[in-house]
Structure formats: C-alpha cells, structure tokens
Amino acid sequence: MCGIVGLYLKNPALESRLGELFEPMLIAMTDRGPDSAGFAIYGDEFDAGIKLTLQSDGVDEDWEAIAKGLGEQVGTVADWFSNASVAVFKIAGEESAVRSWLADSAPQIRVLSVGQSIEILKAVGLPAHIASLYGLKGMQGSHIIGHTRMATESAVTLQGSHPFSTGRDLCLVHNGSLSNHNWLRTKLKREGISFETDNDSEVAAGYLTWRLEQGDSLEAAITGALKDLDGFFTFTIGTRDGFAVVRDPIACKPAVIAETDDYVAMASEYRALASLPGIKDARVWEPEPGRLYLWEKDTARSEAA
C-alpha cells in the first residue's frame, strides 16, 4: 500500500533538473507510504559493459577494495562512486562474473540493479530522508520512477523496499496488494528466479523477469501479468528508454498521468504532480483499467493489454 511517482523527460534540456523536479513528487506521497522509499534513476549510460548499483548494510563498507577486486577479477572498472550505503560501478565485464565474484568475496553486498542506465537507490524511512540521504535534488538523468511504501504484510526493510529490479535496466514499483503471490513465488523459484523477501511486489517483479528471460517482449510479459497476477495493483515499470503504467482490471488503486511537450509524469495522486512546471496546462488523465501505457523515447503508446 503505497504511493508511486514517475517522471519521463521529453525535453533533454530538463535532464540536468530531473532530481530537482522529482524530489517534491516523491515527498508529496509521504502520507501514502511513510515506511520506506526508493527510486530508480536512468541516465549516464554506459555501453562498454555493465553498470551496477551495489548496496551494503555496513556503514563503512570498503568500496575501494570492492572496486579493486572487481577490477582484478572481473573486468576493467571504468568508473565507480559511492553514495550513502550504495555504490555504482561501471565495469567492462559480464554480470554473471560480477555476481559470482561478489558471492565468493563480498557476500555482504547486494546487487540492486544491473543494466546500462539504471541506478536504484532506496532505504527505510520517510521519503524526505531518503531524498536527502542520496542527494536526489542534484541528480541528472532522462527519467526516474519512485515509490513510498506503507508496508502491508512483509517487513519494513531495505529488501522489501521498492523499486524491485526485474532484469537489465528494468524495475517495478507497485501500489496495491496481490492475492496469489505465494503459489506464484513457489512456481517462479522452480523456474530459477530468486527472491529475498516474502513481499508480493517482489513476486510481480520476479514474474516479469521470468517472462522476459523466456524471450517475451515487455508488452507480452505485462499482458501475462494481467492474467496471472490476482489482486489489486497499479504498476509502474521503468525501462531503459522510458516507463510503463498498468492497472489491474478492477483498478481500485489510483493513478494519474500528466503530459506536456516537456515530460510525461505519473503519480498515485495528482498532488504529487502539482509542483511540475507547466502542469496547469498539461493534459491530465487517469489510465484505464487493464490497459498498458508505455512511453519510450518520444513514442508514447497505449494498448489494450
């Protein structure tokens, strides 16, 4: 039970202000989700290998040593920086090699995201705290999705916080409550998908991961989710090139979308959009139940999923 926000910039001139535009959106959803918050920001692309967001609970994690180890054992570390409890690495190497080195040499490290563009940052606490912890206001990028969480059943932990990574440059945030995630988790585990929590939203993310691994397009995977996931949900799914919004066919959980020449924004409630420039003249509407909305690099699409 939560708040969701997303902002996709059509106008590249705004990319330097992405964090500044997005921070009040996230904070506006505090009432819907005071337990934890997080966001996935896209930009600063790295094509000569992979970009990873790593996280450690240790307050003085030796990221320098991690960088050294990865550089020696996996591939050249083109760049890295740490930010609070996470660090972003750009490595000319394979994801599987990174994961296996981490598992052997630094098992305390979690992989929050993998891709060419995505960085996932999340923590327990109020959205304003998380925004300042990571310095959200100063961040740049092409698009960003975020989440504020009111935990329903699973624990209030970093692992239970959104966004959940669902594959390369893909992540998912969820508002609602699924009603058949336990059987589905069991099935997905058999299919080789691993889970860190008993969170229903992680199952939704795992489901997409699985379908994408099977070779489905994102649209096909989401269409499958509409059939196979029971319960109430509004999902926003971050992709390398934009984001997608889909609501279950009953559509009790709220969602609103605003579009101008400069951006597309989505939120659980309009008040999260109220601070955006030009919002008073934006086209504002509510996504229909069971319909997939997708924005990718200026090509807005909506289709009956």
């Binding site: 039970m1 409550s177 009790c252 959980k253 709220p254």
Partner: peptide, 14 residues
C-alpha cells in the same frame, strides 16, 4: 463487501 470509494490503508488514511 468493500467500501465504494476507498481500498487499502493508503486510501483509508484519506
């Protein structure tokens, strides 16, 4: 069985 204008605790708060 469900309230007509809210579902879940985030909406109940409102």
């Amino acid at each position: 069985c469900r309230h007509p204008d809210w579902t879940g605790p985030d909406d109940l708060a409102i």
